[in-house]
């Protein structure tokens, strides 16, 4: 589903990350934890196509992502309010990824009444559900969650993750969860990796 082959990315002569490798199968939920500032978010952005790798290759289903059309890996970030255009209504935000399936909205518990509101008028948890719905378009194969619920309370976190994992399981998506919260990763993941294990090609190392 997702193969990351010795990728590296540099900025102004400094390598932000290098020699990172990872594989993710359909239906898997892989958790990555590690110290802050090591480049977890950079990796997430690169896998979702927001950044291009300077070396190495990322393959989705055996080949690089197409240049046109929706990227097969979609990223959901920590701050939903930054991930939506504040001048767009929710309906338009969702429509950017194509008209959303009613069943998807239902699974994520997005109430029809939200669609006509502005992002400012939704809570962080509600807005995050919208972002997840947008990320789960028909072309999406991998969902990358970078601290997706770090700013939310425990109840909202549990609700959002259960909904997102439900959709991912039903569609056989791969999920890559990046979080500082060990207990959360322990709960949601089928496999866990520590940052150090991504270096080189030690991608098959499993957590005990």
């Amino acid at each position: 589903m997702l193969e990351v082959d010795k990728v590296g990315i540099h900025l102004g002569g400094r390598w932000l990350l290098r020699d990172m490798s990872l594989t993710l199968e359909a239906g898997e939920v892989v958790g990555i934890s590690g110290d802050s500032g090591v480049g977890k978010s950079t990796l997430a952005r690169m896998l979702a196509g927001h950044l291009a790798p300077d070396e190495g290759e990322v393959r989705y289903g055996g080949r690089p992502a197409a240049r046109r059309g929706p990227h097969p890996a979609q990223l959901v970030l920590q701050h939903p309010e930054r991930a939506v255009n504040p001048r767009w209504r929710i309906r338009r935000i969702l429509a950017e990824a194509g008209a959303p399936e009613p069943s998807l909205l239902e699974a994520l518990q997005i109430a029809p009444s939200w669609l006509d509101r502005w992002p400012l008028e939704l809570s962080g948890g509600e807005l995050q559900r919208v972002c997840i719905a947008r990320a789960l378009g028909p072309a999406t194969r991998v969902l990358i969650a970078d601290e997706m619920t770090a700013m939310l309370d425990a109840l909202t976190q549990a609700g959002i993750w259960r909904a997102a994992l439900g959709v991912a399981q039903e569609r056989g998506l791969g999920v890559l969860a990046i979080s500082h919260d060990e207990a959360l990763l322990e709960r949601i993941c089928t496999r866990r990796l520590r940052w150090e294990e991504l270096r080189g090609d030690a991608t098959t190392v499993m957590m005990p």
Binding site: Q109, A154, L155, Q157, A158, G159, W161, R162, D181, A183, L184, E186, R187, I188
Partner: peptide
């Protein structure tokens, strides 16, 4: 609802 205590959401 904590991940370590059941991860139970509330509608």
């Amino acid at each position: 609802a904590l991940p370590a205590n059941g991860f139970r959401p509330l509608p």
